Amino acid sequence: MDEMTIGVTSTAQIPKQRGAAHDTARGTSLLEAAVSYAEERHWDVFPGTWLEAVKGTQRCSCGDPACEAPGAHPAREDWPTQATGSASAARRLWSKQPTASILLPTGRSFDVLDVPETAGFLALARMERMGLTLGPVTRTPDRRMHFLVQPGGAAKVTDLVRKLGWSPLALDLVARGEGSYVAAPPTRVGGRGAVQWACRPTVSNRWLPEAEEIISPVAYACGRDGRR
């Protein structure tokens, strides 16, 4: 699949997302992408671990051969203090380690609704039909999709889902707020592939939706996906 095209699954076809400040899916370095996120989106960023070649295989810089997210997790326990929204600071950090993953702390510039990829594509198609405004959405190598929403949204998700008639425990829907993080494109996760944009950051989606605005199609998609 072309990395600049919104994905196609058996349940939904999503149209191309046009326009982006920087193309982080094709040819943009991690340093350039990190600086762009800080400078143009005003997102906090911090460098995580990176991949190292060891005897012909790629391993995480953390040294754990069984690392669950090789090259895509915090390198320091005090990572919240390392996160910065300064483009110049981001440039200095990635200049020291240009292959470090790009991690974005949640609960600051945005929260994240984390869902299975199949549910994510179904939700995107449903939201387009409903004419809802979408924020950026990432697609991870472990077949998850991350919907970016306004900060504070994660704390509301449980009650919002209950009001829609769903049991929060019955849905594979993870709300990521303060104290968590997500990896940003073009970070690679071991040999699994790179994080990509399903809906790229554009001028039109600079203002993120509230969780309340998209929770209905997201919860519906997760519920339908869970019944398969």
Score class of each variant (00 low, 15 high):
residue 46 F to G: 05
residue 98 P to R: 04
residue 149 V to H: 01
residue 72 A to R: 00
residue 48 G to S: 05
residue 117 E to Q: 14
residue 113 L to C: 08
residue 39 E to R: 13
residue 134 L to Q: 11
residue 120 G to H: 01
residue 55 K to I: 14
residue 156 K to V: 06
residue 135 G to D: 06
residue 52 E to L: 11
residue 55 K to D: 15
residue 98 P to D: 04
residue 38 A to S: 11
residue 131 G to P: 02
residue 146 H to T: 12
residue 56 G to Q: 02
residue 101 S to K: 01
residue 35 V to Q: 09
residue 79 W to H: 01
residue 41 R to T: 03
residue 91 R to P: 12
residue 75 A to H: 10
residue 90 A to Q: 09
residue 87 A to H: 02
residue 101 S to Y: 10
residue 112 V to Y: 01
residue 37 Y to Q: 06
residue 61 S to M: 03
residue 36 S to C: 13
residue 111 D to C: 04
residue 103 L to H: 06
residue 156 K to C: 06
residue 167 S to W: 10
residue 58 Q to K: 13
residue 61 S to A: 02
residue 108 R to Y: 08
residue 143 R to N: 14
residue 163 K to D: 13
residue 117 E to P: 03
residue 55 K to W: 14
residue 96 K to D: 12
residue 126 R to K: 15
residue 73 H to V: 01
residue 92 R to P: 05
residue 139 R to V: 01
residue 117 E to C: 08
residue 147 F to A: 03
residue 46 F to C: 01
residue 166 W to F: 15
residue 43 W to P: 00
residue 133 T to A: 15
residue 134 L to P: 08
residue 34 A to K: 11
residue 104 L to W: 08
residue 160 L to A: 11
residue 142 D to E: 14
residue 58 Q to T: 13
residue 59 R to T: 14
residue 116 P to W: 10
residue 68 E to C: 04
residue 159 D to L: 08
residue 128 E to V: 12
residue 93 L to V: 10
residue 115 V to K: 09
residue 146 H to Y: 13
residue 153 G to I: 05
residue 101 S to V: 06
residue 167 S to V: 02
residue 109 S to T: 10
residue 158 T to R: 11
residue 137 V to L: 11
residue 84 T to K: 11
residue 83 A to I: 03
residue 62 C to W: 00
residue 113 L to Q: 06
residue 97 Q to G: 09
residue 138 T to I: 04
residue 155 A to V: 02
residue 58 Q to V: 11
residue 70 P to G: 11
residue 85 G to P: 07
residue 150 Q to A: 10
residue 166 W to T: 09
